[in-house]
Design a protein around this nucleic acid. Structure first.
Lengths: 236, 236
DNA sequence: AAGTGGTCTAGACCACAGG
DNA sequence: CTGTGGTCTAGACCACTTC
């Protein structure tokens, strides 16, 4: 570890992030112990600990007393509870049932091209419908760059939990997402997919999902009927 | 500091939170230095530091190198950037202009009574309209318990930034909020207030705002036209 | 110069998991 | 029993603010 302007523990943090991003350690792997990392990097255990604590705070590693420090699996559970923000009107956990989905290569719409840097000539587009309480309630258009996800599989094999699917395919984890919400009358195509004769008011969500190096891995548009669900946000 | 089951630094944290909640230190005040607190509480500086670091992470105190540790003012700036989640379509900061507002005592609607524990026979209700880009775009109904806010002032004197107003009046700070978002056709009353002949789709936000002891200080319903704005969420 | 928080180190002991 | 992370301490030095 050389002397530089930035604090040592941030340099250690970046070195560790680098190795995770490289795939040096894979999802599910345990990192070396604090003492081992300290010896290897030539810093004290306390400095490694501080770096690991900041990573844990960002959910980039998982620390378990007596066991070790782990690169987290993108478990379906975490994807569901952390990145799926819809819940029932009473606050109950809500699990939408898959209805149908398609997979295609499409020319990038301008918004998708702008969101996904380096979009290339065409993108993967997953279109899917999901139902809540037995009625179609959610339509999603999910854009992926082939540069990041060369082959998502087929429409039949796409699982419900996409983020863990991306990780299994590519080693890339979604660690952060930014949503922009608005209300609009459902576009005709969406209203039809939701089985509504008249365009109903829908909650529109535009999402950018980032990997741990800050690249946009996924650009997603959702339209949701909120008769039986709502989007929950906690502002700390 | 007595020996107990919970870690020392959490006991220190709670002692500090208690004093802030008590008003022992007021908004804007500096806390004693780490060494002074350590001596007073009979623990090491490192333990006090760890407690203060967790408080800073939760925005309950403000630490500034060379100056000290402060109980944060509920500045209009923080209220705006942290708890006001609307922005322009291009991501630009957005400042809605106040249009008009009223203040009344009303019988608590069931939802407001459920949200505000101990609501009493009636509540304060602030109703206000705000405009974006020159057109009415936001209607808010804000319920306050007189037990927490005995006298919010008059409709004429209510400022734009309510959370810092609450703090100036009562010493209570909003430190956390939970929003529930849905889309609906604007109720007739709201459509009229927004100057829309037909009920437009609006983003409906139900907010509970908490003080640092976890009580609900405010229950707020908002209806927003999202033609020129959107609600931004970052999921870490 | 004095006082504050920020970083870094070294070492002790505790709590937990697993062989 | 060993090894892990979690807590707690003590002390050194640095960076920043204020007088």
């Amino acid at each position: 570890m050389r002397a530089e302007a930035r604090p040592l523990y941030l340099q250690v943090r970046e070195a560790l992030v680098q190795r995770i991003a490289d795939g040096h350690w894979r999802a599910g792997d345990a990192l070396p112990s604090e003492l081992a990392l300290a010896a290897e990097l030539g810093v004290s255990q306390g400095t490694v600990r501080k770096a690991l604590d900041t990573l844990a705070a960002d959910h980039l590693v998982d620390r378990r007393q007596g066991r070790g420090t782990f690169v987290p699996d993108q478990t379906a559970e975490r994807a569901l509870f952390h990145f799926f923000r819809f819940e029932g009107p009473d606050g109950a956990t809500l699990i939408p049932e898959p209805l149908d989905q398609t997979l295609a290569r499409v020319a990038p719409p301008p918004a998708a091209a702008a969101a996904l840097e380096d979009p290339g000539p065409d993108l993967w587009l997953i279109t899917r419908r999901r139902s809540i309480a037995g009625a179609p309630a959610l339509v999603e258009k999910i854009y992926l760059s082939p540069a990041h996800v060369p082959d998502p599989g087929s429409a039949e094999t796409l699982p419900n939990a996409l983020y863990s699917h991306y990780q299994a395919l590519t080693g890339l984890s979604v660690v952060r997402a930014e949503d922009h919400l608005s209300a609009c009358a459902a576009p005709a195509e969406i209203a039809a997919a939701l089985g509504q004769p008249q365009p109903p008011p829908v909650l529109h969500v535009e999402r950018r999902a980032f990997d741990l190096t800050g690249r946009v891995l996924e650009y997603r548009l959702s339209w949701c009927l909120t008769a039986h669900c709502r989007y929950r946000v906690t502002l700390g």
